[in-house]
Amino acid sequence: MGDQAVYALNDINLQIASGEYVSIMGPSGSGKSTLLNIIGLLDKPDSGRYELDGKLVTDLSETEQAKIRREQIGFVFQSFHLVPRLTAAENIELPLLLGGVSPEQRQIRVNNALNAFELKQRANHRPAELSGGQRQRVAIARATIMQPSVILADEPTGNLDHQIGAEVMSLLENLHHQGTTLIVVTHDRELGGRAHRQIGMRDGKILTDQFHDTH
């Protein structure tokens, strides 16, 4: 087995404009998450170049990449990835804390986010006491608290039922309407179809790349 190299991604050439709404679809193992992680600077390509905002970021130091993740990128995951011992408010606060924002500022911004995502009543609840939809709303609030220019969502509705999933998607789409670049990985054709640009992947390659005029 092992002597044949496996390419999670191979021969990818992709340009995404600021403010676009892109969905990435494809079978399991096709490299969707890997692509998203490279866009989000969580993973490094073995070769190739990646420019963000016209700046080559592949060669930046670990600390500089962390700064970009903190300030320009917001991640939303299928399994929410909330810290179980922290309350909803504290989870939302985390990026501000890492960014060294003052406690007063943090409180104002967290409060605004709690209001915006209708989590005011749940501010002091831990993730275990929240429904799936509420958890993902907390995760989205956390992803947007630093006002990033790019939101990366990896199967954000994968753990939610259809109805709640649709609500979460519209929250993300709202962010896109406010100018944020939105990239969503999904298995769901219907949800994926809502994006203006749909990328189809297979075996680490981009098979299709279609623009739609929806709505």
Binding site: K67, R69, F75, H81, P95, L98, R142
Partner: peptide, 14 residues
Amino acid sequence: EIGLLKAIGATSGD
């Protein structure tokens, strides 16, 4: 949790 912290911008030093 450590992975999450890194994803939202924590440095190794943090």
